[in-house]
Simulated assay, not measured.
Amino acid sequence: MITVVGFALAAAVGALVRSSASRANQTVPYGTFTVNVVGAFALGLLADVDPPVATVAGVAGAGTLTTFSMLCVEAARLWSGGDRILAVGYVAASCAAGVAAAALGIAVAP
């Protein structure tokens, strides 16, 4: 039961933080970029953690904090708004920074 409650709370917090961050700046999506990189680092830290911690913190917390769909929507908005170089750079930077953050999380995990 504690896992279910923890899962729900972690998911709610992650989703609220991500939602707030994605609304922070509509011109350039720094908020979503930041939460995706932070979430990738967190998931890297949790890569070798056993359930239920991995389920609650990883799937619910970091999983709702990060969002591929919002990255896609923001890239599509940039593209359709004529900022095609920025759109491509945003996707490339998000992927590169996310992989680097996850690798760093794995490397520094206890």
Rank of each mutant, 00 (worst) to 15 (best):
L9Y: 12
G39M: 04
R23F: 14
A57T: 08
L16F: 14
P110M: 07
D50I: 08
V53A: 15
S22T: 15
T64D: 07
G63T: 06
V28F: 15
L43Q: 07
N36A: 00
V38G: 01
R18K: 07
T64H: 11
L45D: 03
F7M: 10
A10T: 07
A93G: 02
G14P: 06
S80I: 15
P29Y: 04
G61T: 04
A60P: 09
T3P: 14
V91P: 00
L86M: 10
Q26R: 13
G61N: 02
D50A: 15
L86I: 12
V13E: 05
A11W: 03
G89E: 02
A109G: 10
S20K: 05
A101C: 02
S69P: 12
A93K: 00
R23D: 05
V35W: 01
V35C: 02
A97D: 02
L86T: 13
G89K: 01
G39Q: 02
V91L: 14
A102G: 01
M1F: 06
V13W: 11
G89R: 01
V99L: 11
A101Y: 04
V37I: 06
V38E: 02
A103Q: 04
L65H: 04
G6T: 11
A10Q: 03
L43Y: 08
L71C: 05
V4R: 07
M1W: 05
A54E: 11
V13L: 14
V73M: 09
A107D: 02
A62W: 07
R77I: 12
V38M: 05
A24P: 11
D48K: 08
V4T: 15
D48I: 00
A101M: 00
P29C: 07
A97Y: 13
E74M: 05
V99H: 06
L86H: 08
T64K: 00
R18Y: 10
G63P: 01
A24S: 15
S22E: 11
A102H: 03
A60D: 10
S20G: 14
V4C: 10
L45H: 03
A76F: 14
A75R: 00
A107S: 11
A10E: 05
A62L: 11
I2M: 12
L104S: 06
V38L: 13
A62H: 05
Y90F: 10
S20V: 13
A102E: 02
A24E: 08
V5C: 08
T66L: 11
S69M: 04
A57W: 13
E74T: 08
V17Q: 09
A60V: 15
L46W: 08
M1K: 01
L45F: 08
A109R: 09
G61P: 01
M70D: 10
G39L: 04
E74S: 07
V5L: 15
V88C: 07
V108K: 00
F33W: 04
A87C: 06
R77E: 12
A76H: 08
S19T: 14
L78A: 09
A54S: 15
A62Q: 05
S22P: 03
S94M: 06
Y90E: 02
A40T: 08
F33G: 00
L65G: 03
A15Y: 08
A93S: 10
T67E: 02
